[in-house]
Design a binder for these strands. Structure first.
Lengths: 145, 145
DNA sequence: GGTATTTATATTGTGTACAATTTAATTGTA
DNA sequence: TACAATTAAATTGTACACAATATAAATACC
């Protein structure tokens, strides 16, 4: 009885625990660079599309301004990016990487592979997992996906 | 180039985003009960195995004492459980649900199903996702799995 | 039996997450 | 063109997570 309340039968719990486990695999690799996982994904987003409003980062990272604003301010202080109010729309703040921010890319190139090597999934399993996660993530309800 | 640094090619990112999305589906259902997601999984663990040391909860939930100690103290204050030093080993603190904590189970019975209905995966897909997540989670490196 | 080591929690400090609210700018509309 | 509604960020407040350290009890070992 109560099978639906068994920890092992939840989908939410392994997701929650697994996400934290993977993040913890990255943490020691970021430490020498003085980065955190959240800062890393902000960089990943910006290395792909730079000079974008805060709202663009919010959408792509599924994070809100309450999380990103202080993070971006800190990254600005550390010289990785600039925050500039848009001339066309004064409500908008544009984020642009500095040379230092762009250069950081070279230093993290092989980190995804190192973490990947710690995860014992076959390429097929990793692909399946990736596909299923995006299927859940891109459902219409939340974040206007 | 730089395919390995594209946000979309990471496994960590959809995991991280998906975990937060699922948690956010639970939050409004917990609100009338005054619960948080983390408290919920502590209850799930205790409804299965009650009267256990803090270390047992740490292992089952993949959380450390820095997270659980303040959480358990708060849940104790709210009358959901008791924290008692073991007589046999004074280092150990045993956690036991009160009647109030046990009774809460009735009020959350259908929440997993409601959340499940929000996730557009077939039973087979959900099973596959569950299996792959546990495969990653139960690898030997971390948490003594 | 006394001391070093290990173990179980607790504490401290830092960094997210996010709900709710605020502020300021822009847009829609009578 | 005033004025309401909307939008983009920022702010405030609460709740985790977790690394690092501290504390105290138990065990190991000489």
């Amino acid at each position: 009885m109560d099978e639906q309340l068994r920890l092992e039968n939840q989908l939410c719990f392994p997701l929650y625990a697994c996400a934290r486990k993977i993040t913890s695999l990255y943490t020691p690799m970021f430490k020498p660079l003085g980065l955190t996982y959240t800062q890393y994904i902000v960089f990943l987003a910006l290395w792909e599309h730079d000079n974008v409003p805060v709202s663009d980062l919010c959408h792509r990272l599924y994070l809100d301004s309450g999380t990103l604003t202080p993070l971006l301010k800190k990254m600005e202080q550390e010289g990785y990016l600039t925050r500039t109010r848009s001339k066309e729309d004064e409500r908008v703040v544009n984020i642009r990487l500095t040379e230092k921010g762009i250069a950081l890319k070279d230093q993290v190139q092989d980190i995804p592979m190192q973490v990947g090597n710690c995860i014992r999934l076959s390429p097929e399993e990793a692909f399946t997992l990736h596909t299923l996660l995006y299927k859940v993530l891109e459902q219409e309800e939340a974040y206007g996906g």
